[in-house]
Computed example of a mutant assay.
Amino acid sequence: MVGRVVVVTGASSGIGRASAERFASRGDRLVLAARGEDALLAVAARCRSAGAEVVTRVTDVTDRDAVRALADTAVDRFGGIDVWVDTAAVMAYGRFEDVPAPVFDRVVTTNLIGAANVAREALRVFRTRQRGTLILGSSLLSRIAVPYVGAYVSSKWGHRALARVLRQETRDAPDIHVCLVSPGSVNTPIYRSAANYAGRVGRPPPPVDASAKVAAAVVRLADRPRPERSVGLANGLIRFGFTAMPPVYDLLVGPLMRVGGLSREEVAGHDGNVFGPGPRHDDEGEWGRHWLRAVAVGAVAAGVGAAAVVARTRRRA
């Protein structure tokens, strides 16, 4: 069977790589893009071994012309695009005042303006056939705020707003869909490859899901589009605490990030892979579920949720 045409930007590692491999296993035809050629070719080889037809193109999503050329490659080779998955993202750790302005700006440019560049080209192609699904790799951090990753949080809040606007503007085309996949912590290399001015290597706060779990959600969105799909056992509870009791949340989130979001491994300041591809990584990072820390963090979060319920009940009484 001839599958759909799927473009994946950010395909060289993590969720992008896992998504490409899952689409490949279904027989979809793939156009894979990332900044690092070696890692991209390795992913393409794995997808071809699964029987998929694959085209690769080295692409930086911050380059509008390169993203347009990527879209044209898909159209020229396969006649169109059915699904575009954008998971390209970078991160920087550190207090806002400690992160160099060029690093902060580049994180926002890659994550938000890069997504806009992708959306512009995806919609240009989708409009020609009045159908297509754009899936943007979002985050739980598009709905809450945490310290030490201010550029990433800022970019993801803008990311969610952009998706909402695009849904409003494509209401005239009911077969064009704009979707968000919003995971919590995921076991990918982004934490170690991030720029870092926090003094300690970052890590995903527990509980941590495998990138394959998020990839499964991506494929479900491609099959049955809906505005957003959240991935993460604790996401709802964390969002509730953030919304229901902001003072308590803000009091606790700093200590919890220092315990759960930063490792004990010290590191000198560096710009990571923010300005260019870093060393090649495996599709999974080095972070497990760390259930002991997850239980401790979850207990505190549950306490916040319980306190919020009590406070609301008292206000209504």
Rank of each mutant, 00 (worst) to 15 (best):
V5Q: 03
R22V: 10
G150H: 02
S230W: 04
E21Y: 01
V146S: 12
A163V: 00
T188P: 09
V107C: 07
R316H: 14
I238T: 03
A20W: 02
G278W: 10
V153W: 01
C179W: 00
E97L: 12
M245E: 13
P255F: 13
A311L: 10
C179N: 01
F23T: 13
G79Y: 11
A50H: 14
A74T: 10
A234N: 02
A234V: 14
M1I: 03
F126S: 05
E53H: 12
A52S: 03
V201L: 15
D250Y: 07
V153F: 04
G10I: 08
A92Y: 05
A11R: 12
R239C: 10
V75W: 10
K213H: 11
M257W: 08
A299E: 09
A311V: 07
P189N: 10
V219E: 10
A115L: 00
K213C: 03
A234M: 15
V186D: 13
G305F: 09
V248R: 09
R220N: 05
P174M: 08
V99E: 01
T9F: 09
L180F: 04
G51H: 11
A161G: 14
V300P: 05
L41E: 15
V153N: 01
C179T: 08
V67N: 06
R315C: 13
R315Y: 09
K156Y: 06
A306R: 02
R57D: 02
G269W: 06
T87K: 00
D82C: 07
G236L: 05
R68H: 08
G94A: 08
G305P: 06
V7D: 00
A101W: 04
A222C: 13
H270C: 14
G150C: 13
A306K: 00
H270T: 05
L251G: 05
W84F: 11
L30Q: 12
V90Y: 05
V274Q: 05
D65F: 07
N111R: 06
R289A: 13
Y249P: 03
F104G: 04
V125A: 05
S139C: 10
S211D: 11
V153Y: 04
A302W: 13
V58S: 02
L162K: 01
V186K: 07
S139P: 10
Y93I: 06
G202H: 12
A39Y: 03
L233Y: 14
A216Q: 15
V310A: 15
I15P: 00
A317Y: 13
F240L: 15
N117C: 07
A294V: 01
S154A: 15
A161I: 09
G114S: 06
W84S: 02
T59E: 09
V181P: 10
S263D: 04
R160D: 05
A116H: 09
D98V: 05
T109F: 00
F242R: 01
S138G: 15
V274E: 01
N111W: 02
P255H: 13
R26S: 10
W291Y: 10
R143Y: 12
A45D: 14
D38G: 11
A20R: 04
R258P: 08
V8K: 08
L32S: 09
V146I: 15
A198Y: 07
A66R: 13
R48E: 15
R203D: 07
S19E: 03
R171Y: 08
S185M: 05
R316Q: 14
V5G: 06
D60V: 12
Y249A: 06
W287Y: 15
G3V: 07
E21A: 08
